[in-house]
Simulated scan of single mutants.
Amino acid sequence: MAAKGDVPAAAGSVVVPYGHVVGNEKWRGSEVARRLQGKTKLIFEDGLGLVDFHLSNRICVLYISEADLVAGDEFKRRVVRFRNASSLGGIVIVEKTPITEQYFSAVQKLVVLQLGMVLLPVANQGEASQLITQLVREQSKDHTSNPFLRKQCSQLAEASVFRTVQQIPGVGKTKALLLLQQFGSIHQICNASVKELELVVGQTVAQQIHTFLGS
């Protein structure tokens, strides 16, 4: 049986009061928590499992720090467990620094290409707090149906996918745009045959894409 901290709380099981952020107890006293408390109403709870911050009852953040990236693959297992066990909308925030630059493409491939989640890089916890605050403010414009939050998350997801496709060897902005226009999603690009890819980006790049996504 999985330990309590091994699974995320179910959608709707965490009640986030209007205008608040619910943070995992482990972040109490951290820089991101201190900065958030100056901008929004932050409350801490145990039992959030894999989730670091709940922005609403259905939208949450998984935070990958510089230390997490350097330490090894545990963060990967955490994100995969979350994706497999939760119906929540998950946004992954990752610290992209000179130290973690070398790991970032692998994180993009896992989070965006394989798991279909939103990935947002930040330089530090201060920048992360600004991003979380921005999302909460968008949500607060309409706390009944949250159309602004949904629109914001949709825009973030689209930008995240576009940036990630550009990281595939041989693919820049133009080819990334052509691929997404033709196939519509990362999932469809991953499932496309070399022949189908060739029609959009040519033989050489098609083979590079197929090799990269299949590795």
Rank of each mutant, 00 (worst) to 15 (best):
L156T: 00
L178W: 10
S160P: 08
G47M: 05
A192L: 08
Q125C: 05
T204Q: 14
L179S: 11
I168C: 01
V111P: 03
V61S: 03
I93V: 15
Q155D: 15
P17D: 05
R28E: 15
S140F: 03
G23E: 03
F162G: 12
Q203A: 13
A33D: 04
Q188T: 10
V194K: 02
K76W: 02
A192W: 05
L115F: 02
R28A: 13
K173R: 15
L55N: 09
V15M: 09
T40P: 09
P121Y: 01
K4L: 13
K141S: 12
L197G: 05
C60L: 05
Q139D: 10
K175A: 05
E198C: 11
S215R: 09
G19S: 12
L62R: 03
K76D: 07
S215K: 14
E45F: 11
V122C: 00
S86Q: 11
S215A: 08
T100D: 04
L199P: 00
L213Q: 08
L62T: 13
Q166Y: 03
V161K: 10
R150N: 15
Q167H: 14
Q37D: 13
L180G: 04
S215Y: 11
F82H: 12
I43G: 07
L177S: 12
P17E: 13
Q125G: 06
V16A: 08
R163I: 00
G90H: 05
H143D: 14
S193C: 00
T100N: 04
R78C: 02
G116N: 09
K141W: 13
S140M: 15
Q114C: 07
N124W: 02
E45D: 08
F162V: 11
G170N: 11
L113N: 06
R77H: 09
V122R: 05
V201D: 00
V51A: 02
A206D: 00
R77F: 05
R58K: 12
C190R: 15
K96C: 09
G12M: 03
Q108T: 06
R34G: 13
C190K: 15
T174H: 07
L120Q: 06
V111L: 10
V200S: 01
I99K: 14
F53I: 08
A3N: 11
Q108R: 10
D68T: 01
D52P: 07
W27N: 01
Q203D: 11
E45A: 12
I59A: 15
S215N: 14
M1T: 06
L36R: 07
K4A: 07
N57P: 01
S160W: 11
Q114V: 02
L115E: 04
P17N: 05
L36M: 13
F75L: 04
Q114S: 08
E127D: 04
C153M: 15
D142I: 04
V15Y: 14
S185Q: 04
Q108H: 03
H187Y: 13
D52R: 06
A128S: 05
V205K: 01
V194A: 05
K175D: 04
R81N: 14
I64G: 02
C190F: 02
E196Q: 04
A192Y: 00
L50M: 09
A106N: 09
P8H: 07
